[in-house]
Amino acid sequence: MLIIMGSEKKTVILTGFGPFGEHSVNASWVAVQNLKQRNLLPNVNVHIEEIPVDYMKVSQIVPDLWKQKIPQLVVHVGVSGIADKITLEQRAHNLGYHRKDIGGKTPTQECCQEDGEECICTGIDMSQVSDEINKADNRLEAEVSHDAGRYLCDFSYYTSLSIDRSCSAFIHVPPLNQPYTEDELGEGLATAISAMLKQLP
Rank of each mutant, 00 (worst) to 15 (best):
D131L: 06
G96V: 02
N26F: 00
V129E: 10
V46W: 01
R165A: 15
G123T: 10
I82M: 12
L200S: 08
M196L: 12
V75W: 06
T108Y: 11
L185V: 07
P63E: 07
C167A: 10
L200P: 08
T106A: 09
Q72H: 14
Y180V: 05
R150H: 15
Y151F: 15
S160E: 08
L40M: 15
E110I: 00
G81K: 07
L2G: 09
E132N: 08
Q113N: 08
F155C: 07
K57P: 02
L65F: 08
H93S: 09
K69S: 10
V79R: 04
N34H: 12
A190G: 10
E49M: 05
N138C: 15
G96P: 09
I120V: 14
P52I: 02
I193N: 04
E184A: 14
P175E: 13
G149Y: 03
S156Q: 04
A92F: 01
K36D: 10
H47Y: 06
A195Y: 05
V77M: 03
F170T: 09
R99D: 11
I86M: 14
S160H: 05
I61P: 08
S166T: 14
G149W: 04
T15D: 07
I3Q: 13
E22C: 00
A83K: 12
Q33V: 01
E143W: 00
A83V: 00
D101V: 06
C121D: 14
N94V: 08
V46A: 03
A31Q: 06
A142R: 03
Y180W: 12
Q68I: 10
L200I: 15
L14P: 10
K135F: 00
G103R: 00
G6E: 13
T122Y: 02
E50P: 03
L197H: 09
G103V: 00
V75H: 09
S80L: 06
G21N: 07
I4T: 11
N138G: 12
E182H: 05
V129W: 04
L14Q: 09
Q72T: 09
L176F: 11
V44D: 00
D54Y: 01
V129H: 07
H93N: 12
A31T: 08
I102M: 11
A192T: 12
I171A: 03
D164F: 00
